[in-house]
Design a protein around this nucleic acid. Structure first.
Length: 581
RNA sequence: GCACCCGUAGCUCAGCUGGAUAGAGCGCUGCCCUCCGAAGGCAGAGGUCGGGGGUUCGAAUCUCUCCGGGUGCACCA
């Protein structure tokens, strides 16, 4: 049950009845939300202020009519007008009890919604070049994309998690050449790695594997024959490497889409360009040289251009390079047409900060190939600066100066990595301090939240000790005398629980999974605070040895907290431990 | 030169898409363990929301402009 959605609907209905002349568009702008200051009430709406002006009425007059309407509603304790025309509701306690009941009934599904209506959404994330292990720069996008995917799935979308393998460019030739060097090394040659080649140790096993498969037969083989063989082997190996890295963070994609499959005669790029030409979206023309570049690097020539400016981009974009091959963007247009033809009308791409200049053309491409039928949201993840005790930090084991994803996970663990990366908006640069993340104090939000979850379990343990005869099964909790939950402190906690469905929905609409992390931290804080109240006032303890019925009711509340924390952590991909080590 | 992102307490950051007296953690000053896990909690001090205009009942939020920081800018991927 979503209290806000419930009252939002009721208020909209009331407004329609009271002010039929207000159109549906106006009604739709009405917001029902918790007031910033809890002393104002449980719910607040701007309904009167939204409607008053267009109708030529006084906001307080409109508000008075609505107040009159809700005055005798049994679910409402009080309604009053405040400030410029806010209407504040105080909700009757039974509604809060219903929230607890629905948490118990829905369990892991509490907060799940039908917002997406089962529509397919394609979320592309990571898409790191398959030329080596993942480094820390990729990690933020990986966690963000994976969490967003979980959030959207929880909100009723049919989510497809996709990884685009850039396996067609010149960097793959370099990769193959680097592997060939390692192969020669494996055969006993002493090698030197020239600049421009990939120096990482991770190619050594590839060289070994090539030796095991081919013996020394590759040495005599013509390059044109040899390179494709090596490419296949090394790409497969790199992909396994990347999958293994992602698995460290429990990230798994549904689709790995190879760019190579778009190329070649009769391929998607060819078909897409033909289609674009047919639609008049391509022309031959010249571009202005970019202002920031040195003019001597600029070669003025006639190019095959995509009319990106027709779809909101800054300039038209080249599709064919001077050597006659396709540009990366040409492949990307074909790729996104492919996504659209696979049935995706909603697409989200998660990209690194260095791709911010790519956003407009990607959106232009999506609009063009779908004839404006598909939408594309690009989420940019800003840079992560690694710190240790406030000092910039470099770790390197196997890949030059880069800190790898594996290094980070090994250092701080998957839970902390995921939570900390989500405990920040994606579009702000962040510092990631290893020392802080490993700390087991309230300064560390991961720990703080997991501690709250563990604490719910420890309360049950205490209860079992004090009441050996009492039944704490889900069925017993469901049958608990929930009306005993009545003190202001308890109901405050329930209010936080009641905000969960609304938080999820808002986060899904905005594509902002970080809100889940902030919410669960807030819930943990509310829970810790209530727990501490029991220190000063024993009557507020969860376990009351002289009152088994109250204890059972309070345990139902604890169980609801446990459930909602678990649900939020599930979206974040962070484990919910029953005890801390 | 252009585009995108950021600028909120001493520090690190939220602020629910335009709402009421702008919030949290750290740090600082105090308080709370014979008591469900103190691995916690409570209270206090601390702000011109980068500056200035505009839109309206109402702006940290939208818009314009300037300042500061980051990222990117044909034929790479």
């Amino acid at each position: 049950m979503d209290v806000f959605a419930l009252f939002s609907a009721r208020i909209a209905n009331a407004m329609q009845v009271l002010f039929p002349e207000a159109g549906a568009d106006l009604i739709a702008r009405i917001v029902v939300e918790p007031p910033r200051d809890a002393s104002h009430g449980d719910l607040s709406t701007n309904a009167a202020m939204i409607v008053a002006k267009p109708l030529g009425k006084n906001p307080r007059e409109v508000a008075a009519a609505l107040v009159e309407h809700f005055k005798h509603d049994a679910d409402v304790i009080s309604v009053e007008v405040a400030g410029p025309g806010f209407i504040n509701f105080r909700i009757a306690t039974p509604i809060w009890h219903q929230v607890l009941k629905s948490i118990a009934e829905q369990g892991a599904d509490f907060g799940r919604s039908t917002l997406g209506g089962g529509e397919a959404v394609n979320i592309e994330y990571v898409s790191a070049n398959p030329t080596g292990p993942m480094h820390v720069g990729h990690t933020r996008g990986a966690v963000f994309g994976d969490t967003l995917a979980a959030l959207m799935a929880f909100s009723g979308y049919e989510v497809s998690r996709e990884y685009y393998i850039n396996d067609a460019g010149s960097q793959i030739d370099t990769l193959a050449n680097s592997s060939f060097l390692r192969y020669r090394e494996a055969l006993g040659e002493s090698i030197e790695i020239p600049s421009g080649f990939y120096p990482g140790d991770y190619l050594i096993p590839v060289g070994e594997a090539l030796k095991a498969e081919f013996g020394d037969s590759l040495l005599a083989m013509p390059e044109a024959e040899r390179t494709p063989l090596i490419k296949d082997r090394v790409l497969a190996a790199m992909l396994e490497l990347i999958k293994a890295d992602l698995a460290r963070l429990n990230i798994h994609h549904d689709v790995f889409f190879s760019e190579r499959t778009l190329h070649g005669p009769g391929g998607d790029i060819e078909l897409t360009l033909a289609w674009l030409r047919e639609m008049g979206m391509i022309y031959e023309g010249r571009l202005e040289p970019p202002k920031g570049k040195a003019p001597e690097e600029w070669e003025d020539r006639e190019q095959t251009l995509f009319r990106a400016t027709d779809y909101g981009d800054d300039i038209d974009r080249p599709l064919i390079k001077s050597d006659g091959s396709y540009t990366y963007f040409a492949a990307d247009i074909a790729y996104h047409r492919n996504k659209f033809l696979r049935g995706f009308k909603h697409m989200i791409n998660v990209l690194g900060a260095d791709h911010s200049g790519y956003v407009k053309r990607l959106q232009a491409a999506t609009k063009a190939v779908s004839l404006n039928a598909a939408d594309m949201d690009v989420r940019i993840c800003q840079l992560v600066r690694l710190l240790k005790n406030g000092e910039p930090f470099k770790m390197s084991k196997r890949s030059g100066d880069l800190v790898t994803l594996a290094d980070v996970v090994e250092e701080v663990g998957a839970d902390a990595t995921r939570f900390m990366l989500m405990y920040r908006r994606n579009d702000a640069a962040m510092d990631f301090d290893f020392a802080l993340v490993k700390e087991q104090t309230k300064d560390n939000p991961v720990f703080y939240v997991q501690y709250a979850h563990a604490r719910t379990h420890s309360i049950f343990k205490t209860a079992a000790r004090d009441f050996p005869a009492l039944d704490f099964s889900p069925a017993a909790l469901a049958a608990a005398d929930i009306e005993r939950i009545a003190t202001p402190a308890e109901l405050d906690l329930v209010r936080v629980l009641a905000a969960w469905p609304r938080t999820v929905t808002a986060a899904a609409i905005a594509h902002e999974p970080h809100r889940v992390a902030f919410y669960v931290h807030e819930l943990a804080a509310a829970f810790h605070a209530f727990w501490a109240k029991g220190k000063d006032d024993p009557s507020l303890r969860f376990v009351n040895s002289d009152d088994p019925k109250l204890t059972l009711a309070r345990l139902a509340l604890v169980d609801a907290v446990r459930q909602v924390i678990a649900n939020a952590l599930a979206i974040l991909g962070v484990t919910a431990p029953e005890e801390l080590s």
